[in-house]
Computed example of a mutant assay.
Amino acid sequence: MLKGDFEQVSVGVIIPAAGKGKRMGAGQSKQFLHLAGEPILIRTLQVFVTHPAVDEIVVAVSQDDWEQTVQLLDASGLAEKGIRLVTGGAERQHSVYRALKESRSEWVLVHDAVRPFVTHDRINALLDAVKMHGAAVLAVPLKDTVKEVSNAGVVEGTPDRSRLWAVQTPQAFRRELLLEAHERGQAAGLFATDDAMLVEEMGIDVRVVEGDYTNIKLTTPDDRIVAEAIWKMRGTQDV
């Protein structure tokens, strides 16, 4: 059971879920699409609700999706777990910031609403790293060769693949550090594609913890096919 409304907690999870996911082309917010018979958002939340180190979960949702999210939490039984909702912003960055201001945690994990396959083992490794270094992210080494390409479609260079990693979530930070990073980013007009970028802009080292290639984010219709395959592959394995 997550902690009470006014109790200071140690580890919190922030889940920005206010986006529409236009690339999915589903006609509804992608977190409401189903994976193995349950909404993807519920599958994601179940990972953190069952993790013994997690004390608090704050989900940022759009006003349009508020009632549907409440209904899903009620139907799944997760409403009883103390999950709190806040109204998200126009961009993911804004949603995370709003949720951060509501959090009471010393440490926060920021996680994509549609990334349901992160395991407890990887969360544990991330928590170990962030408590030692203050900022850490899950990532996996790139498998493919990457090319730098100009606007004209011409190859301009080939980076050293051994130094390139694909970043995943959760990303973990001391809450006060991430809050400061967001506030500085807003003041500077910085648009960041992930939270680690805002922390990097402060000159803070962000440690990489090796993730899992199955920890995918569901963004396009093809991802749903892969996700169903991963779910079947895992079977009854523990998260």
Rank of each mutant, 00 (worst) to 15 (best):
M1C: 09
L2S: 10
L2P: 12
K3H: 11
G4H: 12
G4K: 13
F6G: 09
V11S: 03
A18H: 04
R23C: 02
M24N: 03
A26N: 08
Q28W: 06
K30F: 01
Q31N: 05
F32K: 02
L35E: 00
E38F: 04
P39V: 01
I42C: 01
I42A: 02
R43I: 00
V47P: 13
F48Y: 15
V49W: 00
V49L: 03
H51N: 04
A53K: 14
A53I: 00
V54C: 08
D55I: 04
A60V: 06
Q63S: 12
D64H: 10
D65T: 02
Q68F: 02
V70T: 07
V70N: 02
L73P: 00
G77D: 01
G77T: 00
L78F: 01
G82K: 13
V86T: 14
T87H: 10
T87Y: 07
T87D: 00
A90D: 12
A90L: 14
R92T: 14
R92N: 11
R98G: 08
A99E: 06
L100E: 00
L100F: 07
L100M: 08
L100P: 10
S103N: 03
S103V: 09
W107S: 04
V110T: 05
V110E: 03
V110Q: 06
D112H: 14
V114C: 07
R115I: 01
R115E: 11
F117E: 04
F117H: 09
R122E: 11
A125K: 15
V130Q: 06
K131W: 00
K131H: 07
G134N: 07
A135E: 06
A136H: 06
A139T: 07
P141F: 06
D144P: 10
D144G: 06
V146C: 11
K147M: 13
E148K: 15
A152I: 02
G153V: 07
V154P: 12
V154Y: 10
V155K: 11
T158H: 13
S162A: 13
A166Q: 14
V167R: 15
Q168A: 07
F173W: 05
F173N: 02
R184Q: 15
R184C: 05
Q186H: 13
A187S: 13
G189F: 10
F191L: 13
A192K: 12
E201R: 15
V206Q: 08
V206R: 11
V206I: 09
R207P: 00
R207N: 04
E210D: 06
Y213G: 00
T214L: 14
I216G: 03
K217V: 12
L218H: 03
V226M: 09
E228L: 05
A229G: 03
I230K: 10
I230E: 05
W231Y: 15
M233Q: 15
T236M: 11
Q237A: 15
D238Q: 14
